[in-house]
């Protein structure tokens, strides 16, 4: 193929055979095949795992109160659709609101940290204490002090999701290239211009990495907090649905609720990954696809 590479750099004059177009088509075919693979392979793997599960349960005649078959879980999802959806909506709301508050709080405090060393040194221990103390240990206290269950759960989930956003925002804002900082000084950028055109873009990859982590943590925080709160509240989410089903030995419903929790986690992961790609895809090394 060494001769065809020299053909490519020369203007394509011979009309009867166009090696460049042929090669483009081949590259495009390969790319399409790879895109299909990336969707098909995981879907196929998941489906075969489900089929195997169904088969093993049926073949070994496992009772449904030990391990229900996927078909029974699906059936439960349909019959209990109403209550499960109400619970799911509760958990979704809890997760998203806590994530949003974690972003707002984490970014605001992260900016403050980046602006002032004094503030950072004084406040950082509090952030660390919040982070290292297991939320499950603080949750009972919060539930005593805060009467509204939703607010109490929100605080728990927020504590878990807040830290990665805070620390990554602070590091990200400081990570701006020193020569670029000098350049902004040279052109007498206002503090606002420096933030908008230098610090925020430099911090964005760090922030997006934190968002991916915090999205998952917010869900974990919400579920853990709900477990601690039990079924006490009137509005209950998926976790208390799992707890309640376990008391009543309704194993298929436990699995159905568990499936919805996982689904929620996957959706959050996909959404944050998509967002990261949309924001960084055109420039940052982490999201650029390299030629093999």
């Amino acid at each position: 193929m060494s001769t065809s590479t020299t053909d490519l750099t020369a203007p394509v004059a011979d009309a009867f055979e166009d090696p460049a177009a042929e090669m483009n088509a081949a590259v495009e075919r390969a790319a399409r095949r790879e895109r299909r693979m990336r969707v098909l392979m995981p879907v196929a793997a998941l489906l075969s795992a489900l089929a195997l599960w169904e088969f093993l349960v049926w073949y070994n005649e496992v009772p449904h109160y030990l391990i229900p078959a996927p078909s029974l879980i699906a059936q439960t999802l349909v019959t209990d659709f109403g209550t499960l959806m109400t619970s799911m909506w509760f958990t979704v709301k809890l997760t998203l609101v806590s994530l949003l508050l974690a972003i707002v709080g984490g970014v605001a405090l992260g900016m403050l940290f980046a602006l002032s060393r004094t503030v950072e040194v004084s406040l950082f221990p509090f952030a660390v204490i919040l982070q290292v103390t297991p939320v499950i240990a603080i949750a009972p206290l919060i539930l005593i002090y805060v009467h509204d269950t939703f607010s109490a759960l929100l605080i728990c989930a927020w504590i878990v999701a807040f830290f990665p956003i805070l620390s990554n925002t602070a590091i990200g804002l400081r990570s701006a290239d020193h020569n670029l900082r000098d350049l902004f000084t040279l052109y007498r950028a206002t503090p606002w211009q420096r933030l908008r055109y230098l610090l925020v873009p430099s911090a964005l990859p760090y922030f997006m990495a934190a968002l991916k982590i915090a999205g998952g943590l917010a869900l974990i925080g919400a579920v853990v907090a709900e477990f601690v709160a039990g079924t006490a509240g009137q509005n209950t989410g998926l976790a208390s649905r799992i707890l309640e089903s376990s008391f009543r030995q309704e194993i298929p419903r436990m699995f159905a609720a568990l499936f919805l929790v996982s689904l929620l986690g996957v959706v959050i992961f996909l959404a944050t990954s998509f967002l990261s790609k949309a924001v960084l895809g055109h420039w940052h090394e982490s999201e650029i696809k390299r030629e093999a």
Binding site: N179, L183, H282, H284
Partner: peptide, 9 residues
């Protein structure tokens, strides 16, 4: 500067 010091974004 010694490096091109461009904003990669």
């Amino acid at each position: 500067f010694q490096e091109a010091t461009l904003m990669p974004w």
